Computed example of a mutant assay.
Amino acid sequence: METRRRTLVKAIAWNLLGFVVMTLVGMAMTGSATIGGTIAIINTMIGLSCYFIHERIWAHIRWGRVHG
């Protein structure tokens, strides 16, 4: 099983990458760094929460695990 701390660190690392990508996409779509950054912040907050919950649920599901 994965610790909550590991899940949180993975979620943060993934969302930092997503934040950068979303900022660039938002800037490209709107032409505004402020709007692009705002979109990225909102997306990152929602994504981080959803990813953390998703990982914690899957940490308790035994299906598909190989123990060796």
Rank of each mutant, 00 (worst) to 15 (best):
M1F: 14
E2V: 13
E2K: 12
R4I: 14
R4K: 13
R5M: 07
R6Y: 15
R6S: 15
R6E: 15
L8H: 07
L8I: 12
V9Q: 14
K10D: 11
A11R: 07
I12T: 13
I12P: 04
I12H: 07
W14N: 13
W14A: 14
W14F: 15
W14Y: 12
N15T: 11
N15V: 08
L16P: 05
L16D: 02
F19K: 01
V20T: 13
M22H: 01
M22N: 00
T23S: 08
T23V: 11
T23L: 11
T23W: 09
L24T: 00
V25R: 02
G26E: 00
G26K: 03
M27S: 03
A28Q: 01
M29N: 01
T30I: 06
T30R: 03
T30Q: 05
G31S: 04
G31T: 04
G31D: 01
A33W: 12
T34K: 08
T34V: 13
T34L: 11
I35L: 09
I35W: 02
I35K: 02
G36A: 05
G37Y: 07
T38V: 12
A40F: 04
I41W: 02
I42D: 05
I42H: 01
I42F: 06
I42P: 01
N43S: 02
N43P: 00
N43Y: 09
T44V: 12
T44L: 08
M45P: 00
M45G: 07
G47F: 04
L48C: 04
S49F: 14
S49R: 11
C50D: 05
C50Q: 14
C50N: 11
C50P: 00
Y51S: 07
F52V: 12
I53M: 13
I53R: 13
E55G: 09
E55H: 13
E55N: 12
R56W: 07
R56A: 10
I57F: 11
W58K: 11
W58C: 08
W58I: 08
A59V: 11
I61A: 09
R62Q: 13
R62F: 10
W63D: 04
W63K: 15
G64W: 09
R65Y: 14
V66C: 07
G68K: 14
